[in-house]
Structure formats: structure tokens, C-alpha cells
Design a protein around this nucleic acid. Sequence first.
DNA 1: TGCTAATTAGGAGTGAATCCTATATATTGC
DNA 2: GCAATATATAGGATTCACTCCTAATTAGCA
Lengths: 141, 141
Amino acid sequence: MDIKRLEEVFRQHNLKVTPQRIAIYQELINSSEHPSAINIYERIKAQYPNISLDTVNRTLLTFAEIGLVRIVEGRGDPKRFDPNLHPHHHFRCIKCGKIIDFYNEEYDALDVPSTLKDRFIITSKRVNLEGICDECQTRSD
Amino acid sequence: MDIKRLEEVFRQHNLKVTPQRIAIYQELINSSEHPSAINIYERIKAQYPNISLDTVNRTLLTFAEIGLVRIVEGRGDPKRFDPNLHPHHHFRCIKCGKIIDFYNEEYDALDVPSTLKDRFIITSKRVNLEGICDECQTRSD
DNA sequence: TGCTAATTAGGAGTGAATCCTATATATTGC
DNA sequence: GCAATATATAGGATTCACTCCTAATTAGCA
Ligand SMILES: [Mn+2]
Ligand SMILES: [Mn+2]
Ligand SMILES: [Zn+2]
Ligand SMILES: [Zn+2]
């Protein structure tokens, strides 16, 4: 998503176009490891030495609210953010915490059981795999 | 799982059989809403007024390590624990945080893509649905 | 029954997230 | 462009969920 389009999205949601918001989004799409708010905060300080963690965090949560990013599913540790809105799934390493995207049409096409569809509004369906990544297997040999 | 079997499991893992461990496990299987450590702590204080949160938390994490419970996947808020080890999946309400079990053989039978199987050791495969539960739909009408 | 290593209670410490509020700024209407 | 104003931000305080520390307790074993 280019900046023009990003600014449009902000305006569509009555969010002011601020340099901080743009920088935070850019930092997020420039990283592929599903960073946390603090990751983004540390990196963005090079550009904006005075930015506050609260701004980064609040902004990322706002992005999640308007559907511009997703919060990755995990097991209770710091929230990690994902700017990739294409249907995809995750593998998470239980040793090092790395989260790797993968694409799979069978998973995308899974039906939601009608007992659930009838009772709930389903807004997200993801397959999450966990295990030990290649690097961690080597490391612990 | 009855207490006899639970004590066996503890011993198999060289964990001492303590009343706290048993009480924490019982409290967990008596609840179906995937409670957090603090939920369990609050409830168990009726029985053990002096139990510490650290004990509850440490014990639940130990249980997770030996595979006696699972930590539910969520979006970064307090860890929630699940004593149900049968293959099953979760629907989580994004409004009230309720987590509901469901069983689905199609989901259980999903193949892991070989590109992942070759590279990683897969220890868990779950389908997570999110959305708005029936009660929250009514409430916000 | 006594020894020893594991476990616990309770308090301190940590780190992420959130709240508070004075200041700054993007947007709107002139 | 300029002023008005509603929104957003910085920075510090606070909250909350853990996590660590250590002395006292206890389970398991000889
Ligand atoms: Mn992703
Ligand atoms: Mn469950
Ligand atoms: Zn790893
Ligand atoms: Zn709900």
C-alpha cells in the first residue's frame, strides 16, 4: 500500500494524517517478522527520537481496529502485528518465537461448521501451526 | 482425569504430589471457560486462603510444559488455560473474550503442507475462529 | 523418623500496556 | 492564508500480568 492510499484509508476512518502514523505503518511493512509495539518503537526512534511508546502502541491498536493490520495469534506474550492482509496462515516456533507466513488454499477454503455460522458472526478463520523451526533444531543439537 | 491418574502423571514427570497442584488442576477442569491464572487464583483462595499467585501461575505453566494443559491461542492478553486435550478448536468472541470449544473432524484431519513438514517439527495444529458471539450480538442491538 | 531436594508463600521487581494531561498539530470554515 | 477546534502526541504515572527472590515448608525416600 502506497502513502497516497494509506492517507485515503486514514481519511475514510476520520483519522488525521500524521507523520507518526505514516512512519509507524511504513516501519511495519518494512519488517517481515511480525514485530511488537516495542520493536517498532525502538526502530522508529532513529527517525523520530521523541516519539512515545504510547503513540506507537495506540497507533498500532487503531490500525488493528480499522483492519489495516492484524494482531497475530499467540500464547499471551506481547502483541505482534501483521500488515499482511492477504489470506494466510502462521507457523510459530515455540523456542525462538519466530512467526512465519505461509499460504495454503486448502486452509483458506475451509468451511465453517453451520452450527457455528448460525450462532456466531465469524470474522476470522486461521490455521495456526506451532513447533520447532529449522534454526532452533540445529541450535539445540 | 481422576486424582489417581493425575498423581501418576505428576510422578512420571518427577513432580511432587502437592495439594496445591491437585487443587489447581481440579479448579481448572471444573471450569469450561478457559480461565486465566488469576481466575484460578481467585477461586482457589476459598480453599487455600494463603496460596500465592506465583504458585498458581508457575503450576499452570508447569502443567503446560508437561502437556497436561494447553495455553489457548489469543491476541496477547492474559494467558488462558485449557485442560481439554482432545483434538478440538476454538471460537473466540472479540467483544467479550469468551472462548468456546468445538469439534470438527475435517479440521482435525488437515494435512500440514510438506514444505513446512520438511523444514519444521510441527507440534500443534489448530483452527481458530473469531467473531461475535450470540450474546454479544443481542447485547449490542 | 530424619534427610534432602523440591516446592511454596509472600514480597519485590519487571515489562508491556494503558491512562492522564498539557502541549502541539491537522483539518475545516472563513 | 488564518483562526478556531477537535484530534493527536509526548512524557510521565499507573496498572496489570507475570516473574524473580529467598526463607520457610513439605513430599518422598532411606
Ligand atoms: Mn503474517
Ligand atoms: Mn478448549
Ligand atoms: Zn525457532
Ligand atoms: Zn461475546
